Simulated assay, not measured.
Amino acid sequence: MKKVILSVLLFCVMASCSTTVMAADTCEVVLCMYGKATGNGGGSECHSAERAFFNIVKKNRHGFLPDHTADARKSFLLECDSAAPAAISQIISKYGPVRG
Rank of each mutant, 00 (worst) to 15 (best):
8 V>F: 09
94 K>T: 09
63 G>N: 07
51 R>C: 08
74 K>I: 00
62 H>N: 14
54 F>E: 04
44 S>I: 13
72 A>M: 07
73 R>M: 01
26 T>P: 10
80 C>Q: 02
60 N>V: 08
15 A>W: 03
48 S>R: 07
93 S>F: 05
52 A>E: 15
28 E>N: 07
24 A>W: 03
70 A>L: 03
16 S>W: 13
48 S>C: 10
44 S>G: 13
10 L>I: 14
79 E>L: 09
84 A>D: 14
25 D>C: 06
65 L>A: 05
98 V>S: 08
84 A>E: 07
95 Y>T: 05
85 P>I: 02
69 T>S: 03
50 E>M: 08
38 T>R: 09
17 C>A: 07
25 D>E: 11
16 S>Y: 11
13 V>M: 15
21 V>F: 11
83 A>Y: 00
76 F>C: 02
73 R>E: 02
8 V>G: 10
55 N>I: 03
4 V>G: 11
76 F>R: 00
41 G>R: 06
98 V>A: 09
61 R>C: 14
16 S>E: 11
14 M>A: 15
60 N>D: 15
67 D>G: 04
30 V>C: 01
94 K>D: 01
94 K>Q: 04
55 N>W: 01
91 I>H: 00
4 V>R: 13
59 K>G: 04
91 I>D: 01
16 S>Q: 10
88 I>M: 00
86 A>L: 07
9 L>D: 05
81 D>H: 09
24 A>C: 08
76 F>H: 01
80 C>E: 01
61 R>G: 12
25 D>F: 02
20 T>Y: 11
71 D>A: 11
63 G>T: 07
47 H>V: 13
59 K>Q: 08
21 V>H: 10
84 A>N: 11
36 K>N: 13
45 E>F: 11
94 K>S: 05
27 C>P: 05
71 D>W: 00
36 K>E: 11
32 C>M: 10
57 V>Y: 01
61 R>D: 09
29 V>N: 01
86 A>I: 05
97 P>G: 11
14 M>D: 06
37 A>M: 03
10 L>E: 08
34 Y>P: 03
16 S>C: 14
1 M>S: 12
1 M>E: 09
24 A>G: 04
85 P>L: 07
44 S>L: 15
73 R>I: 01
58 K>C: 04
58 K>A: 07
31 L>E: 15
92 I>H: 01
39 G>A: 06
7 S>C: 15
1 M>Q: 12
48 S>H: 04
64 F>Y: 13
7 S>I: 13
66 P>Y: 02
6 L>K: 12
39 G>E: 06
75 S>P: 03
84 A>G: 09
27 C>A: 06
93 S>P: 05
88 I>Y: 00
64 F>C: 09
35 G>P: 12
83 A>V: 02
40 N>L: 12
19 T>N: 06
81 D>W: 04
56 I>D: 01
27 C>N: 06
17 C>I: 14
20 T>M: 13
7 S>A: 15
81 D>S: 15
20 T>W: 13
62 H>P: 04
2 K>F: 14
79 E>W: 02
